[in-house]
Simulated assay, not measured.
Amino acid sequence: MEKTGLVNLPLHGGRAPRWLFNRMVRLAGALTAAVVAEYGVGEYMKRISNPYWFQAFSCVLGFDWHSSGTTTTTCGALKVALSSQEHGICVCGGKGASSRKTPRQILEGGERFNLKTNKVEEMIYCSKMAAKVDNSCIQDGFQLYHHTFFFTERGEWAIVQQGMGGKYARRYHWLSGVTRDFFMEPHSGICCDNVVKQALDMSSEASREAREISVDLVNDGPQHINKYFSCRGGQKRITQYTMPSHHPVLDMDLGPGGFNVLQKAYELQPDNYEELVSLAGMGPKKIRALALISDLVYGAEPSWKDPVKYSFTHGGKDGFPYPVNRRVYDNSIQTLRDALDQARVDEKDRLYAVKRLHEFIQN
């Protein structure tokens, strides 16, 4: 498993018109069929998890090239267009309440593909953990509201999920692979329009020691953790130590419920950080409190660097803040051009898609 990318997009309201969405569904199905026929379903999963290709694909379908709707509407069109029988791909989840149906839909899709029970359970676990990492372990100011899980009859999977923060939405991409490690630099390509000055990233290699100490703190018991907090107004707040110059100011209050979660974690004695984070109720505040204690008390500083690597879809044309990755850019465009040539759509839709792809390239 690897995290393949992250994109920041302007947050736009409203819905795609019905006529446009219907056209997107037709084109999404035809393009997917063409890519699968030419490159195979495994390669398609790599493409859909690639933020560059996904953005170009969304544009070809006809949606705004840089708005938050590229994620939700494109995933929605793919969910309608793709079938396990024709394309060999199952699409689960979606926006808002639909995202909470992901586990059940993975189970249903696994039955259609006749996948083994342990494989289906593994995919459900990966779906939940990917959301947990992006929502709780990477605290960049974006709250997830969209989660789409794609998987094949061989159990290969990809995740496209999106969070909301202020005027922007941020998109996260995941891809299954040989290694299953959610906390060892899982990002292979991250694209953002803006960089958060200070963001707690417990999935970073730089946070390794902080992760280990977090587990030790929990396994020592809440009473041990409690001594680092003082009570103010019925809430437990971390005692003021001398803050290092790099340290952000964070709200570190934990109510009784927070300590109850830590007590349950102590009783379970997690073996590692992944097991700790996977526990019910282990949300952002508890993760942040443990990270801060690890830093202030034990000197194990976690990463406070926003895990972004690129800006815009393929980098900035003026080289700011990152240069265009020409090889990836050209490969993304060529794959879509080939798919358009082979897609079984009428000429009007094909010309429309080619025009959209050209507009995307110009942007």
Rank of each mutant, 00 (worst) to 15 (best):
M24Q: 14
L82Y: 14
T239F: 12
L78C: 13
A210S: 15
D181G: 04
A199W: 03
V25K: 04
A97G: 06
H358A: 13
K305V: 13
P222L: 05
Y329H: 15
R327W: 00
K101C: 03
V160I: 15
G13C: 02
E156M: 12
K264D: 06
Q240F: 07
R18Y: 04
H358R: 14
H224P: 00
F149C: 02
R171I: 03
D181T: 06
G93L: 06
W19P: 00
C59P: 00
V120D: 05
S294A: 15
P321L: 13
Y273L: 00
A131E: 11
Y228N: 09
M202L: 15
G299H: 05
W53P: 08
R288E: 12
G221K: 11
H246W: 07
K227D: 06
V215R: 08
L78S: 06
T72P: 00
A131N: 11
L279R: 14
P256W: 00
S207K: 09
S230I: 12
E153S: 13
D220S: 13
F149H: 10
P256M: 01
Y310K: 09
Q139W: 10
P10M: 10
G40Y: 02
G233R: 04
G29P: 06
W19E: 14
M45A: 04
Y329V: 00
H146L: 09
Q223C: 07
K264H: 08
E275P: 02
Q269L: 00
V345G: 03
K116F: 09
S58V: 02
E275A: 15
K264A: 11
I48A: 06
G221S: 04
F57P: 07
P17I: 03
M24K: 04
E209N: 05
Q223I: 09
Y228S: 07
V25P: 02
E209T: 10
A34G: 03
P17K: 02
A300D: 04
K95S: 05
T152Q: 01
V354S: 01
S332H: 02
G13P: 03
